[in-house]
Computed example of a mutant assay.
Amino acid sequence: MQDDLFTGNNQPQQFGATAYYLPGFVEQSAPSIIEAVRSCVRQAPLRHFSTPGGRKMSVLSSNCGEYGWVSDNKGYRYQQLDPVTERPWPEMPQVIKKAAIAAAKDCGFSQFEPDACLINVYSTGAAMGLHQDKDESDFSQPIVSFSFGLPVTFLWGGSRRTTKPAKIELKHGDVLVWGGESRLHFHGVKALAEGHHTLTSNVRINLTLRKR
């Protein structure tokens, strides 16, 4: 382990061929990570992306890092400038980057160097349908996902959309890491239930870190 702030109560739990659940891995560092996220969204405001077909996504999103993931009528892609501010995305805070690298290393991905962090904020009823993360240029790099605030049900599918997904209950401070054979598996999030958390109020914050 690289830092005592990044640790859960158990060893990584495997839920796919090369997919891992790290319960409570960033719970101790959550206050500093959440504050860093708030600083980022003050520079690059949260907004609803739309799909290429014109449907508004239910989550509010922004980015930090060298690249940001965006979606609009031009398609899904990464770009270095925020289309709202027309400025570079905020620099990725070190507390976020270090936590992602530590989580990836604990799961056997020792070369992970994220340069993009998608910030998603879920309010009551917000969800994410089954999808693949396939807009990156190097699928040898894993995906690292942080959960903060309200609990949610994560859906883990297979290499085809038709595979019935397994359900993983994610709580505050939990981390998921998947790569290798599992890298292009479909995944999603069920609609967020109403609730309250002391650090995030009535929302869930999800950070998804990738190497573009």
Rank of each mutant, 00 (worst) to 15 (best):
F25G: 00
I205G: 00
Q2L: 14
A127W: 14
K74D: 10
G195I: 10
A44Q: 00
C117T: 03
K164P: 05
F25A: 03
A126D: 15
M92S: 11
F146N: 07
I143F: 08
P45C: 10
E136V: 06
Y76Q: 07
P23Q: 03
T85C: 10
V175G: 06
D106T: 09
A193E: 15
T85Y: 11
T85H: 12
P23I: 00
S147F: 01
W178Q: 03
L176P: 03
F146D: 10
C40R: 02
L209T: 05
H185R: 13
H185V: 05
G8S: 06
R210E: 06
L176N: 05
G195R: 09
V59E: 03
V177G: 03
T85I: 13
E27T: 07
V152E: 07
E169M: 15
S50R: 08
K74E: 13
Y122M: 05
S182E: 00
R55A: 14
V41I: 15
D4C: 04
Q14C: 11
Q79I: 15
Q43V: 12
L81D: 09
V95H: 01
G75A: 03
G179C: 11
K56G: 11
S123K: 15
F186R: 07
V59R: 08
Y20R: 11
S62R: 00
R47D: 04
L130A: 00
R210P: 12
K105R: 14
F112D: 02
D106R: 14
T198C: 06
G195D: 10
S61W: 00
W156R: 00
Q43I: 11
H196L: 09
F25I: 00
F146A: 05
T200E: 10
E136R: 01
G65C: 04
R47K: 13
N206R: 02
S71D: 10
H172N: 08
A127Y: 15
M128L: 15
N202K: 07
Y20V: 02
N63Q: 10
N120E: 04
P151T: 07
G54R: 13
A99Q: 04
S71G: 09
A44L: 09
L155S: 08
G157C: 10
A30H: 01
F112S: 00
E113P: 02
G173K: 02
F6P: 01
L199T: 02
T124I: 14
D133R: 04
D135E: 15
P151S: 14
R183C: 02
K190M: 15
G180C: 08
D82T: 06
T51N: 09
N63E: 12
S147I: 05
G125Q: 10
V37M: 11
E91S: 14
Q43L: 15
T163W: 09
M1V: 07
T200A: 09
P151R: 03
Y67K: 12
A103L: 07
Q2D: 15
S32Q: 14
A36R: 02
I119M: 06
A193D: 14
